[in-house]
Design a protein around this nucleic acid. Structure first.
Lengths: 210, 210
DNA sequence: TAGATTGTTAATCGATTAACAATC
DNA sequence: TAGATTGTTAATCGATTAACAATC
């Protein structure tokens, strides 16, 4: 879309942080922010902010700064968030159910429209407004709603199998919460979130400073 | 502890992945693995595996490879996981409750020993075996059990306040699930996990390939 | 014009990879 | 010894930062 060169991996996460600050600033009625202000609020350098934005265009005014609302809208567009996205969750265990209810997704334009499981005991139960459905119904749902995004919250042992099925059903982007190393075909975007590993990062660094 | 030089940020996460594979290999009765096998299983290069390990010592045998159980134990020690860690959660909303029940933490040595909230309506309710307690009781609990680790699952607006209080209570390492940019004093390890941002990574990359 | 801040280039820094001597 | 694989150095690659011309 906007991409001219290879974008550093970390840029995407920082754009999210910038956008959250810009939204706040706009809501406060602030009409101009500088790269320095954005940097301070998000814990990076002003050069980093300007460099991240420069990959996608020119959004500021020299000598002045950026308009928060305008820049917010640009970043949301860059991130693909100038629309809402339907998302399905596979795995209606505790984590899957919690993610289905997590308000932070809807706030950023992600609507959980389905939750699927293979456990017959769970089928028909409700998670908030959504009824847990059998995994076999995934393909139809994906087709009907043109769903591109899915979240995997199943045990590690069945994660690869589930991901293969999701890809088969037409899902194009997957977040994997199972502590398993999964592979996907070319063209499918996969992201692993290892919750325990986050705590391990802490214990590693606490140990380091001994 | 082992550290001689600056360790790349990403090394810690990769060590987690290596350790999971090594555990599996050991459980299968495999007596030797090569850097190439570890690399293949975790999606990195063999050179990366050897380099990551080299920061901490020499764990293999030239011409032969690594013993999975031995290397697993070494890595667990490096990560600070040669012991169990008590962990508290602040925020007994849906996400906090789900994290409290998530089995993946205990598997890696993290025991959720308390969950705290400020909402009087929640105090006394149970999440699994654990009773939700008022936040004022945190300090005593931290002291009694020598707790170093905490997870923040409160709304963004109160996250900084809660983190300040945790630090005051003696918590040294914090995972923040609130979509807010938090700052902590020198010596406190903070890690932010932005769940919505994970989905944004997908939409960004799906948009990219247009 | 003087002061401020962007957009961008060049310099720096750090992480990954390739290559190979050491050695089983 | 021949074959294999580690540990480590040097080369490469990529990301961050500093610096500054452009310009409001």
């Amino acid at each position: 879309m906007f991409k001219k060169f290879k974008i550093p991996e970390a840029t995407v996460g920082r754009l999210t942080a910038y956008s959250r600050y810009l939204k706040e600033a706009d809501e406060k009625g602030i009409s101009t922010v500088s790269s320095q202000q954005i940097a301070k609020a998000t814990g990076v350098t002003p050069a980093q902010v300007r460099k991240d934005l420069a990959y996608f265009g020119e959004f500021g005014t020299r000598g002045v700064g950026y308009n928060p609302r305008e820049l917010y809208n640009y970043i949301m567009k860059i991130l693909g968030l100038d629309r809402r996205w339907p998302v399905i969750i596979i795995g209606a265990g505790r984590l899957g159910a919690a993610l289905a209810m997590y308000g932070g997704f809807a706030e950023r334009g992600f609507d959980i429209v389905g939750i699927f499981d293979v456990d017959p005991a769970k089928i028909g139960n409700k998670v908030g407004e959504i009824e847990i459905r059998p995994l076999q119904e995934l393909k139809e749902k994906v087709k009907d709603l043109s769903i591109k995004l899915g979240i995997v919250a199943v045990p590690a042992a069945s994660a690869q199998e589930v991901v293969d099925f999701m890809v088969d059903c037409g899902i194009k982007g997957i977040i994997n919460f199972a502590p398993a190393n999964i592979s996907v075909p070319e063209g499918i975007v996969l992201r692993r979130v290892d919750l325990a590993s986050q705590l391990e990062y802490l214990t590693f660094h606490l140990g380091e400073s001994r």
